[in-house]
């Protein structure tokens, strides 16, 4: 198992300076022969000639690792898309992909690499791309949880991707009733909700939530299309902590969420 980690470690050590960022992609593959690995290398290098990449394959665990010099997480992620496409077409993909990026590659300690290696083998599904967050690894699983109640699927999808990247645990509910139910199951630290919800509208849901546990009192942020003054007034009267109208700036939303949770 440490075969792969050792190889990666060597790559980092071998660099003349350790102050560059690097990206790492780990992916479970079908068995690759040495020639097979060479073909993969050649074809992938052909697809994306710009980046400097190193490939290693661990026979025991059948994990392919790709080490990308000077790559940020976004580029690493994009590279992973190409890798996945290629492996899928070549019928070599056996599991999911795990990607990580380090500001300075010396931060990729053996400990982290090992847990990453371990994580990629644990991943369920085929062809899913997951992010490996070194910080979360340090912090354990005390991530703040956010309940997202919105009928708008595009917003739900985006915010769960976006906020999960920021290190929060995100739970999604599609309507008011679902929202109350999930709230009672999870008691999140923060609720982001729309006011236009089917079955039970946002106000009714907030009242229910406030009613169900008065002493805990999760913070509530409204994210809605409603721009009427009465709605703003009423929301704050019901105990909302913030009111954001759509279209919204995700950066601003994240900042407000951060302030409310910390």
């Amino acid at each position: 198992m440490s075969n792969l980690v050792a190889t990666l470690y060597q790559l980092i050590e071998a660099s003349e300076s350790s102050h560059f960022r690097c990206g790492i992609i780990l992916v479970s593959c079908k068995d690759l022969s040495v020639e097979g690995l060479e073909t993969v290398k050649r074809d992938l290098a052909h697809n994306s000639s710009k980046e400097e990449a190193h490939y290693a394959f661990d026979q025991n665990t059948q994990v392919l690792s790709i080490f990308l010099k000077h790559q940020k997480l976004s580029d690493t992620h994009f590279h992973a898309l190409l890798v996945k496409d290629y492996l899928q077409n070549a019928n070599l993909l056996a599991g999911s992909l795990l990607i990580a990026s380090f500001e300075e590659c010396t931060r990729a300690t053996g400990q982290l690499l090992r847990s990453m290696h371990h994580a990629v083998m644990e991943l369920a599904g085929v062809g899913e791309i997951k992010l490996f967050d070194p910080q979360a690894e340090d912090a354990g699983d005390s991530a703040a949880s956010i309940l997202l109640v919105n009928h708008d699927e595009a917003v739900n999808e985006f915010l769960s991707i976006y906020l999960e990247r920021k290190g929060y645990q995100v739970i999604v509910a599609n309507d008011g009733v679902d929202g109350v139910q999930k709230y009672q199951e999870m008691t999140p630290d923060l609720v982001i909700t729309d006011l236009n919800l089917p079955i039970m509208n946002g106000y009714q849901m907030i009242e229910r939530i406030k009613h169900s546990d008065a002493e805990r009192g999760s913070k509530i942020v409204i994210l809605t299309d409603k721009r009427l003054e009465e709605d703003v007034k009423k929301s704050f009267a019901l105990g909302a902590s913030d009111y954001i109208t759509k279209p919204f700036s995700p950066v601003e939303l994240a900042a407000r969420v951060k302030r409310l949770i910390s």
Binding site: L73, H77, L81, E157, Y162, R165
Partner: peptide, 9 residues
Amino acid sequence: DYFIYLQAY
């Protein structure tokens, strides 16, 4: 996967 990439960065 590409759309996830778009939304994440």
